[in-house]
Simulated assay, not measured.
Amino acid sequence: MNPHDYFSQTKINISSFSRLAFTLKSSRNLEIQPREAIFEDIMALTTEQQILIEQRIANDAKSPVVAYLLWFFLGMLGAHRFYLGKTGTGVAQLILCILGWLTLVVYVGIFLLLALGVWVLVDAFLIPSIITQSREKMRMQLGGTMAPAIPTV
């Protein structure tokens, strides 16, 4: 799909720094663009639009400090995963923790808690990449909504 075709279908209404809205002129399905095409679309934005996107990302992005504090104090309960938006794996960690403590008396829980401990330890190294992925996802979503409108003839 040509980027100009995509731009011609989009009308932008920027009402404030924190609220961005767009409407599609057509209801036809848009094709999924390859990663390079998305980056080209973002690079086609004006400097002001790029600054707006980066400000929005800085305001909405998850804090690594908060994530690590949750990991340190409540990591076995999966609190850091909930904070980072990984609800499914957060629930899995919570269930493993509960089942581990409940079955500890029959010595099955020791294996569950050991597996959970390894998982939580690995999470300490995964937190920065999860935050980076989240920021990139927001950048792609906002970059698509900020695409400059090309007047149709």
Rank of each mutant, 00 (worst) to 15 (best):
R35N: 13
Q141H: 14
L126F: 11
S27W: 04
I32V: 14
L69Q: 09
W71L: 13
Q93H: 14
W101Y: 15
L74F: 14
F111T: 12
D41G: 04
S134C: 10
L52H: 09
S26E: 03
A21Y: 13
R56F: 10
G100K: 12
I127L: 04
N2L: 13
K25Q: 13
V65S: 06
R19I: 12
R19A: 14
P128Q: 00
T152G: 11
I12H: 07
K62T: 07
G109K: 10
A21R: 12
F111W: 15
L112S: 07
A147L: 08
L69K: 06
T10G: 04
G143L: 00
L84E: 04
T103D: 03
L126G: 07
S15Q: 15
M140G: 04
N13V: 05
L112R: 11
T23I: 14
I38T: 06
L52K: 09
R81L: 05
Q49F: 05
L52W: 07
Y6C: 00
A44H: 03
Q93T: 03
I38C: 03
G78D: 01
F82L: 10
Y68G: 07
I130L: 13
Y83T: 02
A149R: 06
T10H: 12
L112T: 05
T47N: 08
K11Y: 06
G90T: 11
I32N: 13
Q141M: 15
G144N: 09
L20A: 11
I14N: 05
V153A: 06
R35C: 09
I131D: 12
V91D: 02
Q50H: 05
F7R: 00
M1V: 11
S8Y: 00
M1P: 15
L20T: 13
V122L: 11
E40S: 08
L94V: 10
T103V: 03
V122C: 06
Q33F: 08
I130S: 02
S129P: 01
R28N: 02
P34F: 04
L102Y: 08
P151N: 08
P64E: 08
L30A: 08
T89Y: 09
F17H: 05
L45K: 03
T132M: 02
E31T: 09
L77V: 03
A124Y: 12
F125T: 01
R81I: 01
F22A: 04
V120Y: 05
Q55A: 03
P148A: 02
G143S: 05
Q55T: 09
G88F: 00
T89N: 12
C97E: 03
L99E: 09
L45I: 01
P128E: 00
A37P: 01
I95H: 09
V120C: 05
L114I: 15
L113Q: 10
V118E: 06
S18R: 12
L52G: 02
L94T: 05
W119P: 00
Y83I: 02
I42D: 00
L116N: 14
Y6H: 07
G117Q: 05
N29D: 10
M43E: 15
A92F: 07
M1H: 11
S18E: 10
S129Q: 13
G143W: 01
